[in-house]
Amino acid sequence: MIQATNVSLVYNDHEKKVFACNDVTLEVKPGEFLGILGPSGSGKSSLLYLLSGLKNPSSGTIHHHGKDLQSLNDQQRAELRKKHFGFVFQQPFLLGYLTALENILAISPASKQRAEDLLAELGLRDKLHRLPHELSGGERQRVCVARALINQPEVIFADEPTAALDHTNGEQVVQLLNQHRGQGSLVMVTHDPTMLASSDRVERMTEGTLVGR
């Protein structure tokens, strides 16, 4: 469904070239839970940004249903991210002036009922109308999970969603993502192998390349 072919991402760091991703070829299959494991600085986040169209590769191609992401304009790519992808980042980024429920409706204004149900299923039934600063870190990350799930995306990209949480909360977030993704795929990046216990497949990454191939 998402096919990365020989993609590289190069940063120019004081004249010196840094290969955040180096000649990576990878497919995300429909409905799978793909784990990407690697130490800090190995290029996991970079790979995720490439797959989700947040960054353009320096070389190589990314196809989504056979369509080259680089051939899309900004607006089409934003549309793709909004309608077909879901994101959970390392930090639970929410809009501080909106309540838990409103944060989700900001993406999908028409899905009030579904948003309420989702939040309830994620254990936030009583906290729909709280502002982010009135929620704990784990609760905030669960709101982010609900936001990622609201449009029933084809793929959810999760970049270390557990990093800011303790182990129990972290595992809970991964489980919730896994349970509620329905038909969608889940691509999760982490340096913690225990978080990938329920994954279908794990790719390992070091210094910008996939290993074990």
């Binding site: 947040l54 900004d74 607006q75 934003a78 549309e79 793709l80 991210r81 909004k82 309608k83 992808f85 994101f87 980042f89 980024f93 809009l95 501080g96 900001a106 993406i107 936001r147």
Partner: peptide, 14 residues
């Protein structure tokens, strides 16, 4: 931060 987040999750600059 707000604009970055919104852009990342699918809002256009426009």
């Amino acid at each position: 931060v707000e604009f970055g987040l919104l852009q990342a999750i699918g809002f256009t600059k426009q």
